[in-house]
Amino acid sequence: MSSPIIIACLKWVAHPGEPHDERFAGASPADRAALELALQQAKELGGTVTAVTVGPPATETVLRDAVAAGADRAVRVDGPAAMLSSDVAAGIAGVAEGAAWVWCGDYSLDRGTGSVPAFLAAALGAQQALGVIDVQFAAPGPAARVTRRLDGGRREVLDVTGPAVVSVEGAVADLRRAGLGALRVATSASIDVVPLRSPARRLKAVVQPYRPRAMALAAPDGSPLERLRLLTDAAAATAARGETVTLAPPDAAARIVAALRGWGYLDS
């Protein structure tokens, strides 16, 4: 059997705070974690890593970074900058067919929906484990014990055997630092460009809520107790006396809005 192919899917995303500035763009932490796991797994299995992205030529920077970190092959599926998740998945599936395992980040920094991995698993007919927060490789063979985050703080532990699509959170792994020599080579590494199998459907206007860029902030002023009181107590709590009513949906909605307005939550 030829050596297994591990796929790492990377998306080139703009910096939420500098959306028009390419200097600030790159792969999301979750995608970087996915690449790290791909590299680790390839080492375990004696396989190779193929880094894949879908997008225009400018997105190749994430692939070069992947090659610098150790990916054996880089493929760009040529497509427009904004695409439907299902089309992105179809594009990746063309490259990932026959792969032993596919690693993805679960959410990209640019308010992604996290649905590409699910579409991809469907397109490949592979197992899927999405939103994974811990990965333990179970030698031998392409298998892993992964932990998923569920609602309410619960966890689900799954034993996954390949072929599988696994999407991970950014905290699962830190991408290794590329060596200097590898980095120098990667700046001129060749990147395979393949066309989309079926033309991408036009993405109609996407409504994206404004979200300021994430940043680390210092601890807030005041004692924790003071803050807790501020956050939970006072105005809202005393005003919010419970009320049970039976109403038709439109009336219920109107009532809720009126109540929220009454408590001052809707004042701008």
Binding site: G179, L180, L183
Partner: peptide
């Protein structure tokens, strides 16, 4: 020497 693995040039 740089702060990268295999970092001498």
């Amino acid at each position: 020497r740089t702060d990268r693995p295999d970092g001498d040039l």
